[in-house]
Nucleic acid binder design. Structure first.
Lengths: 347, 347
DNA sequence: CCGGGTCAAGAAAACGTTTTCGCCAAATAA
DNA sequence: TTATTTGGCGAAAACGTTTTCTTGACCCGG
């Protein structure tokens, strides 16, 4: 019972050779006779030999594995980033070990520990923690294990980062609404993570640049899902005067907000223009096709893959080298507007 | 440079002990002095020791890893299944190694080989192959490695399977349209995989049960995405007589179909009623909220997790034991209707 | 004083590889 | 002929664990 595996030794025994010679054939060493090589390859084929990467990892001190710890897989953003990373890592022989923290910081810490134990050569982390890093990163530092923060960064911790330029995202969305003639622009912000904070900043900056006043009640919060968007929008509509437009933290929030507006008998975009973010799949098929800011997730993924693979191959570093003067990389991908019906006021 | 790790030996050296004793402490063996145990635990904490699972896997002949090979992550189905599996596997100490075949059979075969080399204890495969298994499963059989087919099964190969009851799905959708008074019911089928074939079967069975004729042109094919749905629907609308309703392979196809209908100036559901499948996130926010058949993906994932973990723990089997008389398990999850506007003809 | 038992620790073997080094025979050069 | 190189192969060590077996010290009862 159990799994039966063919080892180098099995090939060696059958051919009256040593494991060393067999190994050498498979590693393409030159100091082995052509005829011997042929016989080994033939036998390996015949027995269906597959190398044992666990053993190889141990002796070579290289797992060829990249770990990813994500809060969830709900948004297309993480899926597409994941696909982009997989597409780059696989041809280089790297495997991807994935863990989901379920938005739970303790679970996140456990999964990170687990990744360490699995000897990953690099770790991509989209942290679920509210904006600030704790000492849960210490084990990574101690081991000098390459860390790449994805999408969300920490205010008090310098690490390599790849994500969307969220300040720009906020500015783009807001500028677009202004351009459409909106003046009472509200914002449904997300939870207390860097992306949400940066989007608020972009929103404010752009309003200020156009000398538009911010009604104090025009920024409402939530957990970042459609449920939250629905209820936040419901209450926003009761403000006096009510907003004529809203920039939402992401597409799910925008979807909820749209539902709230339509349920209230108001029209989109005539009464309330809506802009989301993330360009979720099929958001063009919403009741009113949704204007959104595309985060170019595939590009984010590609950048993340390039960086983490580079770090892994060079055997750098969480933050140790930063302290020796080298700055961590910070890659911000510029978002792009995708304009659809939900915000089109001008014809 | 490179990653620096703390080993058992480091702890042992500092405390003038042998690795054996240190290992025993961490494995909770009883034959070690209480004071020694305390010192070891303290030192392990101090040095930030994390066990090396690669070494442990090698000696214990247990990787505690489950592999998943999926065609892609686009549909919410796979995401939710993945999440459900992760939720069950993680508490049991299993990690998930994921690979994406990109719908490419060769890539799929490579990824399977890779999983073998990584010594996974069980493999979940949603194959991209058109309905029939090839000899690419031979390495799995040879090693007696537990295989679980997810979502899509093979006609000519008996293996454990967990997925949606797709025949029922096709019947449910069709029956619902009949109930709404539709008579010219078309079907936009998916690619040549078992799920699509089964859905067609359900569709035909239900039509026959109601003695409804099938217009030969009423089944149109495609690749299963919204693009395909759009063009297939476009041409379906030119049929004489045109269908008054359509059951679509999945929600993306339905989304494309809806777009085609609306673009043609027709109304949903009055002129053409539409039913999708999969209950994609936010399909209730479509231009016309989409009626769909929910595949209960979380339940599928939970079942898949239970089965593969059970197989892995018991060290069974691809198909070897099947031949010894034990039948592979076949778990079919019953889908449920989610009725929304796109199909509601009766008030 | 001896035999048995208990307690605490370590030595050795094992897991499947890779790599370095050494060995021997045959071929080549001097 | 002798010295040197070359070609082909294997022995041994290493990677970080876990497990089994052994050892030695100590205590207790007879």
């Amino acid at each position: 019972m159990g799994i039966v595996a063919v080892r180098l030794k099995d090939i060696a025994d059958e051919l009256q050779l040593s494991v060393v010679t067999v190994s050498k054939v498979l590693q393409n060493y030159r100091d082995v006779n052509a005829e011997t090589r042929r016989r080994v390859l033939e036998k390996a084929q015949e027995l269906g030999y597959r190398p044992n990467y666990v053993a190889r990892s141990l002796v070579m001190q290289r797992s060829a594995t990249i770990g990813m710890v994500l809060p969830h897989l709900r948004h297309t953003f993480f899926q597409e980033v994941y696909q982009a990373i997989a597409a780059k890592a696989s041809p280089k022989g790297y495997s991807l070990l994935i863990a989901i923290s379920q938005e739970d910081p303790d679970q996140e810490a456990r999964e990170i520990d687990h990744m360490i134990s699995r000897q990953v050569e690099g770790l991509i982390l989209a942290s679920t923690r509210p904006y600030t890093a704790g000492d849960f990163l210490e084990p990574l530092e101690k081991r000098n294990l390459p860390l790449l923060l994805l999408d969300r960064e920490f205010a008090n911790y310098d690490a390599h980062f790849v994500g969307t330029d969220d300040v720009e995202l906020g500015r783009f969305a807001t500028a677009h609404l202004i351009e459409q003639g909106c003046t009472r622009i509200a914002h449904l912000r997300g939870p207390d993570v860097s992306t949400a904070i940066a989007r608020v900043e972009g929103y404010r900056t752009e309003l200020a640049a156009h000398k538009l006043t911010r009604h104090p009640h025009y920024v409402a919060g939530g957990t970042g899902d459609d449920e939250a968007g629905y209820w936040a929008m419901k209450s926003l509509l009761k403000a006096k005067p009510p907003p004529d437009s809203v920039f939402c933290y992401n597409d799910p929030v925008a979807a909820g907000a749209m539902k709230a507006v339509l349920d209230s008998g108001l029209r989109v975009p005539q009464d309330v223009a809506i802009v989301g973010a993330g360009n979720m799949h099929y958001s063009d098929l919403f009741r009113v096709p949704l204007t959104t800011v595309d985060q170019r997730s595939a590009e984010v993924g590609a950048q993340a893959a390039d960086l983490i693979l580079d770090l892994a191959e060079r055997g750098s570093t969480t933050s140790a080298t930063h302290k020796r003067g080298r700055r961590p990389k910070r890659v911000l991908v510029k978002p792009t507007m995708v304009i659809r019906e939900s915000s089109r006021r001008k014809r």
